[in-house]
């Protein structure tokens, strides 16, 4: 699984989650209760569309072990038309990159 979903942060977005709307693979679904889930975690393309629109930063992307992943993650936040990426290194160090 390469899309990481933070169950504590997901707020379901009033039952109209933008992450599910923008996923190019139609992979994210909202169950009757709880947080957003991926119906086929292995089918994620890692495009990042969902993490950019999540208002709670509940979503992050990482590389799967099959592609050499060691635990780094990327989150994104939209701030005044810009995207602030937060890269968490395997040692827990945070790096912010603004586009």
């Amino acid at each position: 699984m390469t899309l990481l979903i933070d169950a504590q942060r997901c707020r379901r977005c009033g039952e109209q989650p933008r992450c599910a709307d923008v996923c190019p693979g139609n992979l994210l679904v909202l169950p009757e209760r709880g947080h957003i889930i991926s119906r086929e975690p292995d089918d994620c393309w890692d495009c990042g569309a969902c993490i950019k629109v999540c208002p709670q930063q509940a979503l992050a992307v990482s590389l799967p072990p099959e592609a050499g992943g060691q635990g780094s993650t990327l989150r994104a936040k939209q701030i005044a038309g810009k995207i602030r990426w937060t890269l968490e290194h395997p040692d827990g160090r945070l790096e912010t990159i603004e586009l």
Binding site: V61, A67, G68, G69, T73, L74, I83, L87, P90
Partner: peptide, 23 residues
């Protein structure tokens, strides 16, 4: 190097993870 990170974040974000995963 920083510009490269930004360039990849604009089209293939997981490339940035590859560098980070390798430390």
């Amino acid at each position: 190097g920083k510009r490269l990170q930004k360039a990849y974040l604009s089209m293939c974000p997981t490339q940035v993870l590859q560098w980070s995963d390798a430390g």
